[in-house]
Design a protein around this nucleic acid. Structure first.
Lengths: 227, 227
DNA sequence: TCATCCAATATCGTATACAATCATGTGTCC
DNA sequence: GGACACATGATTGTATACGATATTGGATGA
């Protein structure tokens, strides 16, 4: 594992774990033992705890008292709420981004899309998912809204967990086309269209999930066995 | 100081500090020494650190490496961003709340407003400010959106810091009237009007602040002395 | 054979100790 | 007299030790 910066090691570890979660290398429900994580990164439990608390606050891990940290398993309700929050934040932010975007930003988004395509071709779906999320975060950054960008970063990461749990395999590759269209609207400073496209994109994302109750994640064993 | 629950003491301490910040009992820039806070609450630095990290993640305190924790001093830019984020989240949430509100909720909001009036009459402006913030949080709760409610909680607390720094004393008491009007719209399930009122309310809040650069908070001594 | 109780184990929760770092103040040299 | 270097103090950063708690496994009894 990449050794974290000697400074801010807790933050580096949190980022590393978040990245792994985002790329689906860590599945929802995975246990993150303090000792184990500490050994992997070569630090004591003290700093691991700081990292885990950080992630807990971002809702990426769940801290169970006296039981340890686990990669979060968002409920269906939480999944819906995450996308509803995104639906409030992202469309208007995309509009702002369209009004402020600079040539360098367009280049960057374009390379994001290409990297995502490459990742998909190489079969690294996790990395593609991560890049796809970063596309959204980047738009908030272009809109010059750090506070909103931070929230979107969180929501995107949580969306990755939601996708891990509730994705239905049919309805797949609309994604990249949506990003292409968004980029075109942004590049032409068409704020109105960017806003609409983002709204539709998020809606289509949500409808590609199976958020019916019956497929609830087996949070309790009783429920898992259909008792 | 109220002794925190033996369980989750870090969270209790964080909540206590957040409350104090929200009520302007702790001014922006105040130093929060780990030893001092630990002594006040009767716990070791370990748990104090956890609480401070939590607050740091909420942007209520700023952690300066090897220097300690300080109550945050939002920049003008951050102040704007906080209200822009609220402008995206709250109006639509108010509309949802209007559609779902129950009689008990109306009662609760009414009592919030009354408590706020009482606090103002008793001269405890800090408490009034806190209650005024809780009014907004309560609306998100009524809308049945935990995720958004959490964000609004954070943003409201940060708004309190912004108010402490940038409030201009003229333009004061429009507040309670705005809440009254909002409650009427909510109580009559007039979602459209609730959304509009919330949008205007936030706008008027922001314009009652002095967010011009020249009044920047003296983050550096040089700036404070007008050098 | 089954349920109940209890001990053993593993993990987390907290306190404390020590190391690292930065700020301040002092002394010396130019 | 001024600037630099260094020692000192205070505060945070990290590691470790110990205590608390919940689960697991086995033993005992009916």
């Amino acid at each position: 594992m990449a050794l974290p910066d000697k400074d801010n090691s807790a933050e580096a570890i949190a980022a590393s774990l978040a990245h792994a979660i985002h790329e689906h290398r860590l599945a929802p429900g995975s246990k993150l033992s303090e000792d184990e994580v500490g050994e992997i990164f070569g630090v004591s439990r003290t700093v691991v705890r700081a990292a885990l608390q950080r992630l807990s606050h971002s809702r990426l891990v769940e801290l169970k008292r006296n039981h340890g940290a686990f990669v979060a398993q968002p409920s269906i309700r939480e999944a819906r709420e995450v996308f509803e929050a995104r639906a409030l934040l992202e469309p208007r932010t995309a509009r702002s981004a369209a009004e402020r975007i600079m040539p360098a930003d367009i280049q960057l988004l374009q390379s994001h899309i290409e990297a995502e395509h490459d990742a998909l071709k190489n079969g690294s779906a996790g990395r593609a998912l991560y890049l796809s999320g970063q596309f959204h975060v980047e738009i908030a950054r272009i809109a010059d809204q750090d506070t909103i960008a931070e929230y979107i970063t969180q929501l995107v990461a949580r969306s990755s967990l939601v996708i891990a749990l509730y994705w239905q395999r049919r309805a797949a590759l609309c994604e990249s086309h949506a990003h292409d269209a968004l980029l075109r609207a942004l590049a032409t400073h068409d704020g109105q269209r960017a806003e609409e496209l983002m709204k539709e994109h998020l809606l289509s994302l949500m409808t590609s999930l199976d958020l019916r109750d019956r497929n609830a994640v087996p949070t309790s064993l009783r429920e898992a066995l259909g008792a």
